[in-house]
Design a protein around this nucleic acid. Sequence first.
DNA 1: TTCGACACATACGT
DNA 2: GACGTATGTGTCGA
Length: 312
Amino acid sequence: NVITKYNDDGTVSTYFDKRKIRIAPRSTLQFKVGPPFTPSEILNKVYLNDTEKCITLELMPRIDRGFDFIDKEWIGYKRNYFTLVSCFKFLEIDENQLFFNNFTFNLNDNNNRHQIKYFAIRLIARCYEDNSFMTLVQHTAKRDKGPQINPQIHPLIPSELPNHQTIREASNVRNKIKKKKYDSTFYLHRDQLAVKKLKGILSTYPDDEIKKVVRYERVQFASSIAIKKPSQSNMHFKLIVVLGGVVDGNVMSQLDKTGNECYDEENNTTFVPICVRETPSLIIRGRSPSNYASYRQENKNSTEKKPVRVKE
DNA sequence: TTCGACACATACGT
DNA sequence: GACGTATGTGTCGA
């Protein structure tokens, strides 16, 4: 009933069917590495400074909660949270060089160059069959008592992806000392840099606290989405991580090949996709009692069977 | 049948 | 170890 798999960092992912087994909500077994992503698909080239030299960007996303591998399919639950984290890297440039060099990056649109103000990542969901957009929502730890938002575009600098265990450990930290411990893993504080005057791309990020890792936590598919097709067969979904460059003005029509709405009217900037990675086909189980371990078929003598509970 | 709202349960973090 | 927190899911009723 349970499949276990060792992660790169020695932690274990346990995949189990919630129709058969119930695991406590705060159990660490709820954390597990999800499906592998497709290789990067490049949508726009990035040029270094004013040269013709192209820079290769590598996206490194990982799912750390919410998807189980059951009967060769990746399964999530509409009512439950998932966690997706991501970083990115330049293949040709060590991230530490960003601090000592005045690198700028550009996108080409025919003969026009657009200087990238900052790199950013966004998360979207689509229907696997017809590519239509699926709304995602994010809660705070307060859930019903807090606000509900759509996953945002997050400015980001290149970094290593923290391992699965680190994401687990840092998921609900309030303690100051612990926060400090993880700070350099997740943030660069531009205002605390020793560099006197920044000139390169770091100077055009919107805030002094710059993320090194995007963490989409407490994400769910919107409760209103349909899980089944009219034929009653399962709908399939995919999660898509997009790395983009944010540039001034509205250049979406020329450079966006993904159909994303990415012009930000308020700031008059455009998120231009650079590369994307997608999950394989995902199934989302709905709220039907048949998707839970407490479910018992009528007129069967199985009523004495209780759902299996796993204690640690 | 589906969904929002509220409730309960239980391991985690402090 | 007590207490508050976070989150899977049970349930009610529109």
